[in-house]
Design a protein around this nucleic acid. Structure first.
Lengths: 236, 236
DNA sequence: CGCCGAATGTTACAATTTCGTTAATTCAGC
DNA sequence: GCTGAATTAACGAAATTGTAACATTCGGCG
């Protein structure tokens, strides 16, 4: 992956120079917008990973820029870090309605800025993955959002319950899950289901997953677990 | 520690009254938000321990509120319990992804609500300190969660009773355990089991553990103990 | 040192539990 | 009501478990 791209929205030339220097030293690419309007235009043109946004801007202010960014479907989750002067309306920054991910108070040290940016980027990647998560294990790939399962590249059609069951097993792969746990995590809250129902679904899952199905181990006296065959990690 | 603070996000006034009454009777402090937007603002202002969140809300719905809460670093681990109406379709797997900790179905009894809240709060504290129980002793490794035992790297399959017995011995390694103690710690409370049964299990354990099985010493007239061969400790 | 009884080890077996599977039934969406 | 999914039921197979019977060891004691 190449360096993350940061859009800096700031009109103070002294500051922008400093920011550019530091950000690039820290391994980010960055470019500049001197007003909110510019920023919105530029956003559309390049694939930005994070916006560093001053509150005080000529024309529309940082809050408004933020609001407009969030209006766009595409940028709903785009990380935004606010630059605020001491004493500025920090309350508002903290407010959630704007969807700001973090803020830095001027004057700040380059170190602090970098730490925050790094944290937000990291968090961002994770939070995206938590909504559009793809879990992998051996040849198995489960995409929660798309509700799809592929096995060594081939799509496998699972029924709803099978899918959910597999998802939970995969999420906690390696750990033995009691039937009770599975029930409460997979089935509707108020349903009262025979725990043996799980067995049936497990059977069908195993069948549909073929060789890979053998990864679903029964833990006698306890429940089931998905074998965690080593290093294969979680993707995003 | 003072009473946990619960933020109730609910717009039905009848229900909020009831909730407030019951929660306070149960020893929680609580306050109210009538919309998701309010909730998000209020969260920033007070140090909330748990959010009780209705799905149906004016404006943004409960799931979206949840998502936004989770976006913030500070509230990444904040316990959230969903209030759902009977018949509302809930995708628990998705909810799982959002980090919802539990659900309560309306109409619910105060008792049930309290039980769930207490459970979640308890779990929460535990998961923060995240103790993964892996016990090691010589070449022996017992992982409770995974329900696995490895002996010098090789997996050993134990039956449930064998596993439990070994776990207890390992947990109290070095200390002699009377048969009575073992019985009450390993077996179900209401089972009336011959103490000699333990001997049989010990035999089987020793056999399966091979050379390492010799670490299980019998303490004549008392019971058994697992030799504590020095410094090898417990992990995390 | 050798005997004896108590405690423990071992083994086999029967009872029980648990599980996998198939078939039957119910359920939900169309 | 038709269809596929979800659930339950049923039954046989397999694993686990408890017990009892017998073997062995241990420790004290004469």
């Amino acid at each position: 992956m190449s360096e993350p791209l940061i859009l800096v929205v700031e009109d103070d030339h002294n500051l922008t120079k400093l920011l550019k220097y530091n950000l690039e030293k820290a391994g980010y690419k960055c470019f500049l917008a001197e007003s909110g309007e510019d920023a919105l235009k530029l956003l559309a043109e390049r694939d930005v990973d994070l916006v560093l946004l001053d509150i005080m801007l000529p024309g529309i202010d940082g809050f408004e820029v933020c609001r407009r960014i969030r209006q766009h479907q595409l940028f709903r989750d785009l990380p935004i870090v606010m630059l605020t002067a001491k004493g500025e309306e920090i309350d508002k920054v903290l407010g959630f309605e704007l969807g700001i991910d973090d803020y830095v108070v001027k004057p700040f040290s380059p170190r602090e800025l970098n730490l925050r940016i790094r944290a937000v980027l990291k968090r961002d990647r994770r939070s995206r993955s938590s909504v559009r998560e793809v879990m992998k294990c051996d040849g198995l790939e489960v995409d929660i959002a798309r509700h799809s399962v592929t096995l060594n590249g081939r799509e496998v059609t699972l029924t709803l319950m099978e899918f959910k069951l597999l998802a939970v097993l995969l999420k906690r792969r390696g750990q033995a899950q009691s039937r009770e746990t599975l029930l409460s995590d997979v089935w509707d809250v108020d349903k009262t289901i025979n725990t043996r129902t799980i067995d049936t679904h497990i059977t069908r899952l195993r069948e549909k997953l073929g060789e890979t199905g053998k990864l679903i181990k029964t833990v006698r006296g306890l429940g089931y677990k998905l074998e965690d065959s080593g290093e294969n990690g979680e993707e995003n």
